[in-house]
Design a protein around this nucleic acid. Structure first.
Lengths: 253, 253
DNA sequence: AGCGCTATGTGGTCAGACCACAGCACGCAA
DNA sequence: TTGCGTGCTGTGGTCTGACCACATAGCGCT
């Protein structure tokens, strides 16, 4: 009797979300075809497409044309892309001030560094103890590899910035928190253009590059040295100093 | 000569993003009509609609039917809704473990509380000084109001949870960081269902409710008392304790 | 001057058509 | 028997055209 006041695409989205919550759809599964979904839900195919488009942008599905097992919309649940798009567009629309992006990154990354150092500390303390198998030494190998790559001579500014972004993201990945990983990736993407512009305002890129690399080494050393407070402080100085130097923020913390 | 390999809706999205970046579109402005946009960009109206649907879900535009100044798609840049949808769906699709949501909330809210307390401290120290007009006493009035409302007798669990969510969000709002506000709102929305389920596992709701209210008062007192470390610790205990009690996380921090 | 009706333009939706694409099965040829 | 090629089939991607409900603005009538 009651009419469904939701728009057609919202019905589709809610239906898919419900299937996800009930476990009827899991990562790796394929969504029903657009035409099937349309007839099943009593909506037009264009409405189904709008809902799937939303899911795609949010990083929940990946669509493939053609036939066979790889065709169709597949649940992937890769939050990074969606978070990046959200933050990038919000910055463009002036919903997210750049200063807030930087401050949030500061909070998250200092916490990540401190937690990594704590994990190293716990792993060292509990190493002979088999009672805590979940306390593992975090995998910092990729972080170190990226730092080595940043020492290569002849890197362009863009290549350096890409490696820099990868290093900071690798810290979050070592931490393992999916939400933080996606958020950090989004924050970085959102201000990527501003970072590039800020580099142009630097007095000396070689000097800055050398300083950044040294600070990176210091951060990694503090983490591996199981020094949470030290790692926290070094990351704070690293990020706030860099953004102050490129004048990305009106006022440092 | 070169073909545009992007899909049609991506062209539309990129065009609008570009207009936003160049300042041709600002919050409050209206997008061109769907038919106009379609002919201008050489795509079909359905592709334009898919792009606008994405913008709507991400919280960038609000659409209205009809005629007049309120009709059409209007730039709003309200990130909260988009962040909530993103995180809620990612949790549903198992891209975001609930434990990671909780841990991220812990990091952000402890940082918010500490920063608020620091702001109070700075405001108190600089009160006679006119040189720092940007250092203002944060507005904690709404936080206190919500705590008063939570003391009202006869609140249902859902009403209490709604006020609880509003209180925690009001802390972020007092801090003023748009990114943190949107993220906290999204985190809360994503686990709302799990919070409700967790309440059912409580031994005694009245006891828990009373404890939560007391802890809220303590947090607010620490902030107003300009005690960053105290506020940080109290928030940490409040959140991790609550989630441990409702068994939302497999292991406390 | 006030009121009501209509013209207009908006997003929302659906139906149908066509395309490019990828896989698969069938059938032909070696 | 084995191999290859070719069409068939179903997928998403796109466009077109049509209709609807709605909200405003302007006109004309009272």
């Amino acid at each position: 009797m009651t009419v469904d006041e939701r728009r057609a695409w919202e019905i589709v989205l809610a239906h898919i979300e419900n299937d996800l919550l009930l476990g009827r759809l899991r990562p790796g599964d394929r969504l029903p075809g657009e035409r099937t979904l349309a007839t099943d839900l009593g909506v037009g195919r264009s409405s189904v497409r709008e809902a799937i488009r939303v899911l795609e942008v949010l990083g929940l599905v990946r669509t493939n044309v053609g036939s066979g097992p790889n065709a169709g919309a597949i649940i992937v649940a890769l939050p990074g892309g969606g978070m990046s798009a959200l933050m990038r567009l919000q910055v463009a629309a002036q919903g997210f001030p750049v200063a807030d992006i930087v401050k949030t990154r500061l909070v998250l990354e200092t916490a990540v560094a401190a937690e990594l150092a704590e994990a190293v500390l716990s792993a060292a303390l509990l190493r002979p103890d088999r009672q805590h198998p979940d306390r593992q030494d975090p995998d910092l190998g990729r972080c170190a590899q990226l730092l080595d790559a940043m020492d290569a001579p002849g890197l362009t500014e863009d290549e350096f910035l890409a490696l820099d972004a990868a290093f900071h993201l690798s810290l979050a990945e070592a931490c393992g928190n999916q939400v933080v990983i996606a958020t950090m990736a989004g924050l970085r993407t959102a201000i990527e253009g501003y970072v590039r512009a800020g580099v142009a305002r630097l007095a000396s890129w070689p000097d800055t590059s050398a300083r950044l690399r040294a600070e990176h080494r210091g951060i990694l050393a503090a983490i591996e040295g199981a020094d949470p407070a030290g790692a926290h402080g070094l990351v704070h100085a690293h990020i706030s100093g860099y953004y102050a130097e490129t004048r990305l923020t009106p006022a440092p913390h």
